[in-house]
Design a protein around this nucleic acid. Structure first.
Length: 106
DNA sequence: TCAATGACCTGCC
DNA sequence: GGGCAGGCCATTG
């Protein structure tokens, strides 16, 4: 069981500052499994049940690919907007500026 | 136990 | 510079 992996993902996701976003690849790289970026997304799906700010985690293009997994799907965008994060068409504006790299900040 | 899937990323054409 | 295909690892059926 790689539950530790999930916990690590939750930990990093929980460390994401408000008004900031990151990508699956960044988290995966921080955990040392850059090739398993998909697993991060997979873990995020499970993190839905926990109090993890999954809405701050998006793909490398700054696109809210997993918004459909929220309930309702608009919740993700709403949450980001509530944190002063500009979101247009499921796409984060100034993603590069709001990008939060755990390898860089931590 | 084996096989298929998945909120992705990197590399090559 | 843009588009396509492959790969990686854990979870679920």
């Amino acid at each position: 069981m790689a539950k530790d992996f999930y916990l690590q993902v939750y930990e990093v996701a929980c460390l994401i500052p408000e008004g900031r976003v990151t990508s699956y690849g960044a988290i995966a790289r921080y955990l040392g499994v850059a090739k398993s970026s998909r697993l991060v997304g997979y873990a995020m799906r499970q993190s839905h049940g926990s109090h993890v700010p999954a809405h701050r985690v998006v793909n490398r293009n700054g696109l809210l690919t997993g918004r459909h997994h929220f309930n309702p799907p608009e919740q993700m965008q709403q949450l980001l907007v509530s944190e002063r994060v500009s979101v247009k068409e499921n796409q984060i504006q100034d993603f590069q500026r709001l990008f939060w790299d755990p390898n860089l900040e931590l």
